[in-house]
Design a protein around this nucleic acid. Structure first.
Lengths: 139, 139
DNA sequence: TGATTAATTGATACAATGTTGCAATAAAAA
DNA sequence: TTTTTATTGCAACATTGTATCAATTAATCA
């Protein structure tokens, strides 16, 4: 379990240190794998407000602190531990989605590979999602 | 513009040849790049029914005839010309999403690379989405 | 430390997206 | 042509996401 200095990290992006933001960041940072809005909602308890959640998530994604991963219409969120993914997609890891149990897994050891793009495209990010059956469901 | 034999392709997956399915397949097959539900809706005109659309899209995705691509909460659909992507992710191409104009582009010439997965995972599909700024918006 | 400023929150209302149930319809099989 | 079975299309509902705006709170500065 990795602890994140929310004060520091929010300052870095000129974002005010507010309760909802701190909560969302901490919850995601404490999870090795992506989790759903509902998971976050439960952990936030009273503090959870839907509108605030969407806005917080939006801004945190914009600065690159967290990620949104969508598979089969299921949306999950994860803390971006590598953080500086801007223009260095190869630092990002691959995500795995199990079609049976609908769980999402961060494959930290599998990094995104380099893709030769046609000229004139500016690459800012690269997301790799592998779908299939996880080891638990395979049994 | 590539024409698809809808009769043949639907039979292949034991799906009844119905008007909405034929329409969706044809529309997507006629577009080189992914398009939105609204684009499809417009092309379908009277024939469009939201529930039927969602169900058709669902079954067509399940058999692998079409793809759903989601970027920044924007959902698009594309015909899967390579079709037999089951267990051969390297036949799939990469998608590009422009953060400025929100357009989605199929990069047919850029193929998905091979990823070494941990043992015990069954891989069925691999999606690569590259985000950035397209050549038009870059200018 | 306390007043000022500016961003953020949280409530309400709304809009868009996705799902369920079911009777009517139409495609494929006999 | 009749029978069978999947699919459609409607209504009603559920979930997800957004706009507005007054109230609140974080950061700044005297």
């Amino acid at each position: 379990m990795i602890t994140v200095n929310t004060t520091e990290v929010l300052r870095k992006y000129n974002l005010k240190k507010t309760a909802p933001r701190v909560a969302i960041i901490s919850i995601l940072a404490n999870n090795d794998n992506p989790i759903s809005e509902n998971d976050i909602k439960e952990e936030m308890g009273d503090m959870y407000d839907r509108v605030t959640f969407y806005r917080s998530v939006q801004t945190l994604i914009e600065v690159g602190l967290i990620h949104r991963i969508v598979a089969d219409n299921i949306t999950m969120y994860a803390y971006n531990h590598s953080e500086v993914n801007i223009n260095i997609p190869e630092l990002n890891h691959v995500h795995f989605f199990c079609k049976k149990c609908h769980s999402m897994i961060c494959l930290e050891e599998v990094k995104v590979r380099d893709y030769k793009m046609p000229k004139d495209y500016i690459i800012e990010d690269c997301e790799v999602l592998i779908k299939g059956v996880c080891k638990d469901c395979k049994k």
